[in-house]
Each structure stands twice: as C-alpha cells, then as structure tokens.
C-alpha cells in the first residue's frame, strides 16, 4: 500500500505539472473540499513544493501551519511523516523493557508534540505502540496498546483534544531495528506517530 502511494505521488505530480495549471486546479480543489465550517479559512496552495503540501492544506487551519506542519496531513506516507518529524513536528518516544510509563527524558518530547498538535488543530494522528522482540506475541500486543494509550493520555493532559488521537498496537511487529541486542530492543520499544489527515 505504501509503495502504491509512493509511486502514485510522483506520477500525479508530473501529470498536473504537464497540464500547466497545477496550482489553479489544486486551489479550486481545496476550496471545494473544505466545506465544513471549521475549515473555511483554507490556505493558499504554495507555488512550489511536493504535491503532498497541496493536499495538506484542506486539513489544516491557522497561520502557523506553514511554519511547522506543512507536510502534516499527507495520508499514510511514511516519508513525509518522517520529514514532518525531522522538521520538528512529532517525535517518537521510547520505553523501558516491559514498561508503559512515560520516561522523564521523554516528557519534553511529548510537550513539543503536544504544542505542534495544538497548533495544527485539525490534524488527526494515530499513535502506534511497539515492543521489542522478546516475549509472547499476545502480551506484546497488549503492552504496545498500553504504551500508545500512555502517550494519548499524556497528550490529552497537555490539552490535545483526545478525539484527534487514535491508538493502535503492533506488538513486536515492524521493528525499526532488526537487530537482536539491547541497542536494537531499546529503539524498538517505542510509540510513534502517523498523521492520518
């Protein structure tokens, strides 16, 4: 699925550029899709940049969007989500073995995340809980669920509307580090964010 999107985006982009009126088309598109009252103030589509940005606009509101959240609403595209993280949007947090409490050193990270989410007030985010490879599949799905919920609760306490946050657990599936030592495990015990729209 991810691959399809990755392949699709450049194709869609080049097609639009080819007809030579990409911005105009997109702008109309955006306007027509932002009919809900909360999203009346739709942004002007930027002159240049990845097509993902244009798609983004219909889902964001507020003038600060361009600053930090311009890639935010690309559906399910990992590359762009990572780019958003890199630009200071949403950071993953990590956990101790078999634990789901937020560690002290991650509180400032979540404060940043919360601040970004408050600014990008229409963005919906999925919090994904993961574990290291040790232990049983079922326990780890439950543990990942607890980790994602810990993060959700923490963000809610910092003023983020809980209805914008969903959680999912992948247990020990999809490790970011396929190694088998403590260093790899530490990286894999995490909660990360996927921007839904």
């Amino acid at each position: 699925m991810k691959r399809i999107i990755v392949l699709f985006l450049p194709i869609a982009l080049s097609l639009m550029l080819a007809v030579g009126c990409a911005n105009k088309l997109l702008k109309e598109n955006v306007t027509s899709q932002t009919a809900t009252p909360a999203e009346k103030k739709s942004e002007t589509v930027p002159e240049e940049g990845p097509v993902g940005e244009s798609v983004t606009q219909r889902n964001l509101s507020g003038s600060e969007v361009k600053e930090r959240g311009k890639y935010a609403s690309v559906p399910g595209d990992e590359g762009l989500t990572r780019k958003a993280e890199k630009e200071g949007s949403l950071y993953a947090v990590h956990f101790d073995f078999d634990k789901y409490n937020i560690r002290d050193q991650d509180r400032s990270v979540l404060a940043e995340d919360a601040s970004w989410l408050r600014k990008n007030s229409v963005v919906k985010v999925r919090i994904e809980g993961y574990c290291d490879e040790r232990g049983e599949a079922e326990y780890n799905v439950a543990l990942g669920d607890k980790r994602a919920r810990s993060v959700k609760k923490y963000l809610e306490d910092l003023g983020v509307d809980g209805s914008r946050l969903t959680t999912i657990s992948y247990g020990f599936e999809n490790p970011v580090d396929k190694g088998h030592g403590e260093a790899a495990w530490a990286r894999n015990r995490r909660a990360e964010f996927k921007i839904l729209k």
Binding site: E138, Y139, A142
Partner: peptide, 12 residues
C-alpha cells in the same frame, strides 16, 4: 462479559 478489571494487562 468482562472478567478482569485491572489497570494493567490481562492476556492469553
């Protein structure tokens, strides 16, 4: 029907 009601985890 709910069987356990802990803060923690109950599985398997």
């Amino acid at each position: 029907r709910q069987l356990t009601d802990n803060y923690g985890i109950a599985v398997s």
